[in-house]
Structure formats: structure tokens, C-alpha cells
């Protein structure tokens, strides 16, 4: 398979009241063409920021990419000017968000917004764009698309809005779709609809997908490979079966033990003690060490790199140092 995107040692900082705070510190990950990658982590771990960095949308100021490289289909994204990046965003990489309401413009109809993407990036005329928009809405499972085209975002339910976002994202058949918690705001029956739709479209269009979520159930059901992030670092990556069967970083393992869905029959959940550290308050050395039951003094010595556990499966824990 060919590499579609390769991120190396990406670091992002934010200027705050308390000085420069690093929010992402040396993240490396990759995604092959047609692959479905899950990025898992809790709030503040940097998973959404990684996506924004790929999109060239890190808010700046106060944000700043301090080092690293993002190569997309062989091109260095961080070196591109705004015009080139805008073209990439529309045509090659598309993104959908947790709350489609904030990504859709409330004063334009759904049809106008989907058609605009087509007119700008595909150069379609007014009528052609409208027809194609209707087709897209039908394709993402919106009933009665001709009528929906004339409606405003607030007239649609959360599930339908997310379908509209997906239609707009797919309008130009991107090579990469970044989905940032696309189902978190939805009810579970609607979530299942959207996940099925995404899987369906992924098969049909063959695009690579980067699915960002905190929901281990969604990850297990949808992705082929998973990256686990904690406190601005990747702590584990590997094929989804391997990571779920043999979680090799203590954080991944503890996270899986602590969710009620996997703790069937126990009266007390094996919780992870402590709190998720905020950017700027990260401990020295391994950032999970203060909450880790396996921690030893050496954990504080330095940030552990990703050690191989099995082919394609890595974990950033010194217990795996050869």
C-alpha cells in the first residue's frame, strides 16, 4: 500500500496567560491509501489538534507549529501557501466535525452550501451543481433530497445535519476524510446509522479515513488500525485486533479495563487513579507514569519512544525496550 499521509515529530504550542504551552509534542503517525485509522484519546490529548494541523487550520495566533513535517501524497503540507492549502482542503482532504451545526452556515440553505463546494472546486455551473448536490444527499441517505436542499440547517435533525456534512465532504471525492468525533453528539441509534453510512461510503469511494474518537466501541467496530494518544503524545499504535487483545501500553490497558462495557460482571470498575493532565502540566518523562500501576523510577528519566511490540504494533513504554 502507498503512504497517503506521513506525520513526523509534529509539535504545536499555544501562547497563553502562563506563557508558551506545548499542546502536541512530537507526534508521528501515518495513514496508507484507503486505510481506516482510529485516533483514540481523552480531552486534551491532542487528537483533534493533530487533525487541525493536517488541515492547516491550527488557530494562529495563539497556536504555532514549532517543529515536524506533514507529508501528504509526497507533498510537504507545512510548506504550502494559503491558496494551495485551500485547494488541498477542498479537493483532497475533507473534514467532518462533532457538531455539524457549527460547521454549517445558518443563513444559507443546505443545497446552497453543498452546491457551493461543487461550484468552487469542481467548476460546475449553477444547475449542474444543484443536481449533483441532490444526488449526493440521496447517496448519504437523506430522504426526499430535493425538498431538503431548500431547507436551512436548523430545520434538520442532528443526524441529518451530519449526513449533509458528509455529503459536502465527499462532494469532491477526497483522498482523505478526517472525521472528528462525528457521532459523539448523536443518539446511539443514529450513531449506528452514521457509522454504517461511513463504512459504506468508504468501501465505495475507497478514501482513507482518519476517525478521531474517545469511544472504544466505535473504534473496535470501524477501524483497521488504531493510534492511542495521551497528553500530546502517541503512546500506542497497531492493528485494532492486536491493540484490543494485547494492549501494550499501560494506559491503553487501563483504559480498556475501566470502561463498563468491558468490565462485565465486576462489581467495581478498575478505575485509573488521578486526572488527565492538562497541556502545560505534563509530568517529566513518561506522562502516564503518575497514574500508572507499573511505574518505576526510570519512567521519569525521559519521554519513552515507541518500541516495537509485534510487527506493526508499537508502544511507548520502557517495559518494551529491547
Amino acid at each position: 500500500m502507498t503512504r497517503l499521509i506521513e506525520i513526523e515529530d509534529l509539535a504545536v504550542s499555544f501562547r497563553t496567560d502562563r506563557g508558551e504551552v506545548e499542546a502536541l509534542s512530537g507526534v508521528s503517525l501515518h495513514l496508507d491509501e484507503g486505510e481506516v485509522l482510529g485516533v483514540v484519546g481523552e480531552s486534551g490529548c491532542g487528537k483533534s489538534l493533530t487533525a487541525l494541523a493536517i488541515m492547516g487550520l491550527v488557530p494562529s495566533p495563539p497556536g504555532r507549529i514549532t517543529r515536524g513535517r506533514i507529508a501528504f501524497a509526497g507533498r510537504d503540507l507545512l510548506g504550502l501557501d494559503e491558496a494551495a492549502m485551500t485547494r488541498i482542503r477542498g479537493e483532497q482532504i475533507a473534514m467532518i466535525f462533532q457538531e455539524p451545526m457549527s460547521a454549517l452556515n445558518p443563513v444559507f440553505t443546505v443545497g446552497e452550501q453543498v452546491a457551493e463546494v461543487l461550484r468552487v472546486h469542481e467548476g460546475l455551473g449553477r444547475t449542474a451543481a444543484r443536481e449533483r448536490a441532490a444526488q449526493l444527499l440521496a447517496r448519504v441517505g437523506i430522504p426526499d433530497p430535493a425538498r431538503r436542499l431548500g431547507q436551512y440547517p436548523h430545520e434538520l435533525s442532528g443526524g441529518l445535519r451530519q449526513r449533509v456534512m458528509i455529503a459536502a465532504a465527499l462532494a469532491c471525492r477526497p483522498k482523505l476524510l478526517i472525521a472528528d468525533e462525528p457521532t459523539t453528539a448523536l443518539d446511539v441509534t443514529i450513531q449506528a446509522q452514521i457509522l454504517a453510512l461511513l463504512a459504506d461510503l468508504q468501501r465505495e469511494f475507497g478514501m482513507a479515513t482518519m476517525l478521531i474518537t474517545h469511544d472504544l466501541g466505535v473504534v473496535a467496530q470501524v477501524v483497521t488500525r488504531v493510534v492511542v494518544m495521551y497528553a500530546g503524545k502517541v503512546v500506542e499504535e497497531g492493528p485494532v485486533e492486536a491493540v484490543f487483545e494485547r494492549p501494550s501500553h499501560p494506559y491503553t490497558a487501563a483504559l480498556m479495563r475501566s470502561i463498563p462495557a468491558l468490565a462485565e460482571g465486576v462489581s467495581r470498575l478498575p478505575a485509573i487513579p488521578g486526572t488527565v493532565p492538562a497541556p502545560g502540566a505534563w509530568p517529566r518523562g513518561c506522562r502516564f507514569a503518575p497514574r500508572c500501576t507499573h511505574a518505576v523510577p526510570e519512567c521519569g528519566a525521559g519521554v519513552p519512544p515507541l518500541y516495537p511490540v509485534a510487527p506493526g504494533h508499537h508502544a511507548a513504554c520502557i517495559r518494551h525496550a529491547a
Binding site: A271, P273, G274, T275, P277, A281, P290
Partner: peptide
């Protein structure tokens, strides 16, 4: 009770 609280910033 698991002592759940990291020390707060001053």
C-alpha cells in the same frame, strides 16, 4: 476512596 486529586497549581 481513591485519592483522586492531583495537587493543584498554587
Amino acid at each position: 476512596v481513591e485519592a483522586a486529586v492531583a495537587p493543584l497549581a498554587p
